[in-house]
Amino acid sequence: MFIIETENLTKYYNKNIGIKDINLTVSKGEIFGLAGPSGAGKSTIVNILLNFIFPSAGSAQILGMDSTKKSAKFKRYINYIPSHAYYYAIMTPLDIFKNAISFYKLKNNDIIYKLSDLFNINLHKQVSMLTKLDMKKISIILAFMTNPQLIIMEEPFYELDEDTAKILLELIETKNRDGMSIFWTSQNEKGMRHLCNRVAKIENGEIIDIIENKKEMISSNHIKKVTLSCKDIPLGILKGIAGDSLKIKDGYIFFDYSGDVGQLLSVLNDYNVKDLSITDSNLGEIALYSNED
């Protein structure tokens, strides 16, 4: 059984086509990406999967259940991260989490506090006072709170800072290893390639290609971007550390590094380094691409 299966899914908005004959499958434990420009039909597919709207033709099955008929039932096992999150202005994040938990009839609230600590969110501040970043954090916590079998996420890294993006990536990786499936939509296919098993490209409401991906896990394969300013380090030493990625421009040295950061620092310690920055290149790429829209 597929986690998601659509058959000739079609949606018209009056006479305009939203999506046409979409046939997709997402397997258990798969991270599936749906990439396409704005207006390509990504949100229409998500809205049909979540039964926010009805298809004009075709069908969608989630966990083997029809998206239009068994929505309340399959939503016990799936969650959703919207690209722009909206909540009730007079409530606090704690009110929202407790309200959400009550729909699932869960008695243990510990997970709320654990995830809130992880994402560093003030549970007692009114939603009307929160930033877009906080709103996005709420949507992420809501999505992971009930340990679902599937998370549907639209531009999950949009509006996130680098620290939060990193926490989210690690959470996705961990939960995915435990068997959670992810349906991820974004405008940028490149940003998805590090995590997705497959990426479908959609344009003008039609799937034009599905690419099999070899995942490059972020946490298991840290490629860091190093930038430094140092005049006395010999070129030979630099080439030994940096390999082919070495670039020198305006007195700054740039290279990619995947080795042990401690060793790198001990080498650099012997020279007069004036400026040094080490960033996670994959994470930066995902966050950058996702924030481009």
């Binding site: 979540l50 926010f52 039932k73 939503k75 909206y86 929202i96």
Partner: peptide, 12 residues
């Protein structure tokens, strides 16, 4: 107010 997005993503 777009809160239907939250409400109807719940199992209801």
């Amino acid at each position: 107010s777009n809160t239907i997005q939250y409400l109807y993503s719940m199992p209801i």
